[in-house]
Design a protein around this nucleic acid. Structure first.
Lengths: 405, 405
DNA sequence: GTAATATGTTGTTCGAATCAACAATCAAAA
DNA sequence: TTTTGATTGTTGATTCGAACAACATATTAC
């Protein structure tokens, strides 16, 4: 059982009281139920004795906690596996099949809706193509329709809530979409719309931040409490910061906008724009242009990069690596992460010359800060956003498993 | 009573168990004692009824908690003040005079030692000049000597511990000074040396990060849970990040090295160095050079800037403002702070043209991220580092007031 | 087959917060 | 000046959850 870190929440806390910082017995019970459920949720399966070790609680207490979670149909206890170890075998606790989250990702060209179980696996995934940028109202309608279409699959399951991964800035205080340029949403109260259309509780978050959260929980960042995540998408570069096991949101929840930064350059010749942002300089569009192909998905780009490695392509990749290296070294100086996760086309940029990128970062960053840091491509595929969004929907349940949902 | 935020710790957590995440009754008690003591420590004085409101705990519980803290000589209950409000007056709880921290700041030219009370006031401050950069061994010796010299003043008080604010990178895991360029310390185990020389527990931290922590607790950042702090010193630019009320340390504790970043430039003509860092471009030395004065302290620089505002000085200030604006906007995009605190000569750079700097930052940063953000000069004077270092010494006591110290 | 080890199970104990009732102290109204 | 209402401190009984100890169970090692 890998150590699952210490802080456990995506923008929620567990204290005794709803208001105030005091702790009481209720808070202890709630916190312990939450800790056990989170552990099972994250690891996928944990024996009772492992839970005892992890929590430091008494055997009998763990038995009571697991018992309550079983009663609430949140976890299942299975017969112990053969472990070839001395002592009485311990039953294996796994997430219950029942509870599910609905993950939603509205994009310019399509809205993706997925059913995600408490074991963080995407059970079903539907993609509804749209011929025009959808409004929040249309989005809510489509989500409701797709949900109705999935009713057969959801018959024997319990929908806990809906999580939306939105390509834009989401204000954490009220889950309002402050600005989503590609969808042309401004100050949109998407969450109440979705809640009204579906009759289910919803939450929204920034797509890239949720992707980073998913990588922290279930991807290459599993068990790593300090990481930064940068995702290269068609529309730019988004990101997220995990610090001490918690997602860093900032004052309003807008943190992680690495793509909008003004990059520094080690070589002035690398600069392609005037007053440009990182995502103007390091971009998918520039790679496609030099490759001479119109577009396509992530795999197509990766394949094209591998196949056609002309000098022009190699040089553009090298340039983007150099610019990225400055941006990463700055982030490493400020945040001192253990891991830098690169997703989308940034993973391709990294893959084109990992040693070169790492050498440049090492030269630029404070050497002590870089010492313990690694760079890795993202581990989760296209399920990343769905898993992150589902986590948002599960967050209330995970924070208070005994609440009414 | 200003809301004192939610997360409460400088790199320490309050859970039930020493190991593991489980919560138990011991943890509840410890956490509540900690919360009450922290509140009194931060606010300087709080009535019992205010503590009740803040914690959300029952009156009788608060009475018991305060009673225990009184018994342990950590707080004092005084007669209520005349409040002109209905109802029975509530006694005022203030920090006890007894417990003190010893704050230490080793620098190239001197070692400063201070006595700081639980009310976060610097009671005494001694400065020992040195004619050569001191070694860790010499530092420990000097601290022990100064402490002996202060023994009369410490006679009726209880020294809780020693906190060192070191101008260098301090590894959080073992409090080792990884690298302090100006002191020429590398991988120095200063903490055990000080502990051996004084017989008291010690902790070390980065000076700028501790300054930021002090500003968050007692300066302009009081009550603000998301801020970034940049300090301009003679030797460069250091900083710290407070996120969700906790100091952001990163994986090893090296976070906050804003000064080592490679800056972006809105105008190529602003660049003075090749491959330079932010602290090469925005520096105290460049200001002194254009002013034509050799050195001096913070106040001298500020006075010189106010008096001699030649075009050359104004232009250098404007240039540094422009470069700083890019650096700040990048940090704001990534961290979305509510407040940016500028200390040292950076406060002077800001003061030379607050509107201009803010206008530039507004133009560069993601507008939504900048919206709720303010920039302010640091509020604490030269006591900042001493208060921050003392906080380090108090941290164990604050986390567990019932422990043995 | 027996010993050793680890873990589940059960009933009891302990500790901390809560609650209710009462006392104390103030301001404002009568 | 007295009365009323509001707020808070104080006290003893209650409640609830984790810890504990003793015992039961299941596995490996010899």
């Amino acid at each position: 059982m890998g150590t699952a870190g210490c802080r456990l929440g995506y923008s929620d806390r567990v204290t005794g009281h709803v208001n105030g910082l005091g702790r009481n017995l209720d808070g202890v019970r709630r916190g312990n139920l939450s800790t056990v459920l989170r552990l099972v949720h994250r690891t996928g399966a944990a024996s009772r004795s492992q839970i005892t070790q992890f929590t430091g609680l008494n055997r009998s207490t763990v038995a009571a906690l697991v018992g309550e979670l079983v009663e609430r149909e949140l976890v299942v206890e299975n017969d112990p596996e053969a472990t070839s170890r001395v002592g009485r075998p311990s039953p294996i606790v796994t997430p219950h099949r029942g509870p599910v989250a609905i993950a939603v990702n509205p994009e310019v060209d399509a809205i993706t809706v997925a059913i995600v179980g408490l074991s963080a696996r995407v059970d079903r995934r539907v993609r509804r193509e749209v011929d025009h940028p959808v409004t929040p109202q249309e989005t809510a309608q489509i989500v409701a329709q797709e949900l109705a279409g999935l009713s057969a699959e959801l018959a024997d399951r319990r929908v806990v809530g809906i999580g939306l991964a939105v390509p834009g800035l989401v204000r954490s205080a009220d889950n309002t979409v402050r600005w989503a340029p590609h969808l042309a949403w401004t100050d949109s109260a998407i969450v109440p719309l979705v809640e009204a259309a579906t009759g289910r509780p919803a939450r929204a978050g920034n797509d890239a931040s949720l992707g980073g959260w998913a990588e922290h929980l279930f991807g290459v960042g599993r068990g790593i409490d300090d990481l930064i995540y940068l995702n290269g998408g068609a529309s730019g570069i988004g990101g997220g910061v995990i610090s001490a096991g918690s997602a860093l949101g900032g004052h309003r929840g807008f943190a992680g906008e690495f793509g909008q930064n003004r990059p520094g350059f080690t070589d002035p010749a690398d600069q392609r724009t005037v007053h440009g942002t990182l995502e103007d300089e390091v971009s998918r569009a520039r790679l496609l242009a030099v490759l001479g192909i119109p577009g396509g998905d992530e795999a197509a780009l990766e394949a094209a990069l591998v196949n056609s490695s002309t000098p022009a392509v190699r040089e553009e990749l090298a340039r983007q690596r150099r610019v990225l290296a400055v941006a990463l070294s700055n982030a490493i100086n400020v945040l001192n992460p253990e891991l830098v996760v690169l997703g989308g086309f940034l993973a391709s940029v990294y893959a084109s010359g990992p040693e070169e990128l790492e050498r440049d970062v090492a030269a630029l960053a404070v050497s002590a800060a870089w010492e313990g840091t690694r760079i890795r491509p993202a581990g989760l595929g296209e399920d990343r956003l769905m898993i992150g969004a589902a986590e948002l929907a599960f967050s209330a349940l995970l924070a208070d498993p005994a609440g009414d949902f």
